[in-house]
Write a protein that binds this DNA or RNA. Sequence first.
DNA 1: CGCCAAAATTGCGCCGGCGCAAAGACGCCA
DNA 2: TGGCGTCTTTGCGCCGGCGCAATTTTGGCG
Lengths: 240, 240
Amino acid sequence: MKNNARDEVYARHLRGVELFQGLTAQVRAAIAQEASLRSVQAGNFFFHQGDPATVLYVLIEGRVKFTQVTPEGHSVLLRVSGPGEMFGAVAALGDAYHPATGQAVTPCKALGWSSEGINALMEQYPRLALNAIRFLAGRVSEFQDRYRELATQRVERRVAHALLRLMHQIGREAPGGTQIDLAMSRQDIAEMTGTTLFTASRLLNRWEAEGIISTTRAVILVRRPNLLAAIAEETPPPTL
Amino acid sequence: MKNNARDEVYARHLRGVELFQGLTAQVRAAIAQEASLRSVQAGNFFFHQGDPATVLYVLIEGRVKFTQVTPEGHSVLLRVSGPGEMFGAVAALGDAYHPATGQAVTPCKALGWSSEGINALMEQYPRLALNAIRFLAGRVSEFQDRYRELATQRVERRVAHALLRLMHQIGREAPGGTQIDLAMSRQDIAEMTGTTLFTASRLLNRWEAEGIISTTRAVILVRRPNLLAAIAEETPPPTL
DNA sequence: CGCCAAAATTGCGCCGGCGCAAAGACGCCA
DNA sequence: TGGCGTCTTTGCGCCGGCGCAATTTTGGCG
């Protein structure tokens, strides 16, 4: 077994990544050899919506947000990814073009494999392909759920759900509750939940008054997750 | 090459299926050997939401609709599948449970592979796995788009989009336009687009009066697809 | 051919949530 | 520490689309 230092470092990052579960260290090392590292400054872009897709990434560090923009200029925040997550997959493995824009919100490092490279690796290591399938199946399921949520629930519950999702995904324990470890402006919240900046602001204020959360500018601390969950699940007034 | 008659018949169906593209006839035959055929009467179910997933299907004939029901009892129509499409994949390949209910709307025949069986086949024939990845990637992309649609567009445009999607997917040329080859009640339209029966009814009536479509009960004939597309794309009044 | 249940229509009232504008609060940078 | 730009709050008005109930239409079926 002879790897140079670079591959050694890459391979270390692959151990905990969902996409590489069940592979031997040797195989991970071989896969790592094909990767290249890309660093992106906060605010800069991995790719833009509509770009031809050439690379599949696995995020090593930082946070990336994915947005789609409608022809009329409204943008929708699809998700925020953290370390260990694969992204660019939908495009690199399927469609030829990125369906969304990926922007670094903190300084990021990601490993990248070319479309052809990753396809070849998957032919060679079927387990890799099965992991990718698992991942994509989960993603489909998630978006079906969110679609249903958007179709049937009113704004209040959607926002509550979104906060809970964020809390679980990128929450960090803090005195007094769980802090969402990423600046999320009211605008961002609105774009995640299909509402407007104003409505989101009103909701968060009310919840702050009720002691459910507390906010400082774009930083949100969830104080009473159970109350938030109650709002998310409950069916308070008779509605659609 | 020695296949019995049954496998011969199955294999024939697999030729045009997206999931089996790029495989040799021999491989397709081998895969067919593992399949079992399931027939479901109109109105009966392939599986229900929440059922443990054990089988991945490829639809041979008929139409299947997939719905999710919210805890409160509202249902959402996620999609309608036709011959050649794979379904049950999200569950059989990823999650252990079906995220939606699959109901036959016409008499259906489908080939099924057990979860373990299809996983083994994918290990053996990586191309199969890559095809599945492509399929799932497309599905993710589709739902991201529909999510954005639901989040940003008003009802009128969503319904227009839905009709166009149906028209392309399961349309059949007919005198005077393209007919959507499946009974779609107003209720179904509403569940597809996140609105209510009433609003859907009003919209379809207006469009019928304008000569864009014509309907008889649950059967919809699209007369002026271009006008429908105009509604779907255009941004008539200033909106969200 | 006529009855019945399911689907579809339509009128009316109401309200959640958007749209905008103006004011206020931070946080940043020099 | 002062100024500036961005993010946020808040009041007010309005309207798209929901909710319901009553009625009509339609197709299926005996």
